[in-house]
Design a binder for these strands. Structure first.
Lengths: 125, 125
DNA sequence: CGGAATCCTAACTGATACTG
DNA sequence: CAGTATCAGTTAGGATTCCG
């Protein structure tokens, strides 16, 4: 596996801006769902996450968990039983993200209807 | 009343969750940069945005602006002079996003160094 | 059970050329 | 100036198969 490193030649404006990089992390299609699921339920097995986040493929779930683990947001615990058992859990750092998740949720619940109306009007023309 | 008219195929968990859809909007590679730029500078011409957000292709900038316009976050004003002049500006709805942008920024500035450390350690193994 | 490796297609993206 | 249209390269993602 290779690490994708940015060329970072241009982007003086924001390529390395912390908030942009945060969006790269939690803006991922599945990452936010994993974080919220773990935030609500606490420690979960791989198969529980898979069942909870319906529609995610095994490849994407694994990839997402690896990324979150790499970023220190999620911890992975292997119990070498037979068959093997793997649990995932938010780290303290991961749990600190639940705050902005709440802010996102609040803005979304308050304003997404307006977005929907804007879209409907835009599409009508 | 709350009747769910979902096709209910997969995604029972969150495909239509407002916060997920919000992330689809602002999590886009360029959308957040456009929003922040317009938030900082106010009304900007196409060419100003293009210069400010270095590295964005004209295709992506146009596409991003169209999406933001469709979502009602950005307004587009054409002045039919010669040559034509086009200005972009955050709508009130778009400006209301600056709040969560600030929350994102705050979390990022506070915690991204931890993410960086976690990554460095993960990659070392 | 919890993956890794492979293959393959659809979507995204950038470069280029052209236009009102 | 502010785009649109087109094409080619890259990548993301799903399906499948196999393994400790």
């Amino acid at each position: 596996m290779e690490v994708t490193e940015r060329p970072a030649r241009f982007d003086a404006f924001a390529a390395d801006c912390p908030s942009r990089r945060l969006l790269d992390t939690i803006g991922d299609k599945w990452a936010s769902l994993v974080i919220v699921a773990l935030g609500l339920t606490g420690r979960m097995r791989y198969s529980e996450l898979s069942a909870r986040i319906a529609g995610v493929s095994q490849k994407m779930l694994t990839q997402t968990l690896r990324h979150l683990e790499r970023d220190g947001l999620v911890s992975r615990t292997v119990t070498p039983s037979v068959p093997v058992r793997v649990d995932y859990e938010l780290t303290p750092l991961g749990r600190s993200l639940l705050g902005i998740m709440r802010h996102l949720k609040e803005w979304a619940e308050e304003h997404m209807p307006e977005v929907d109306r804007a879209r409907a009007e835009y599409d009508r023309r």
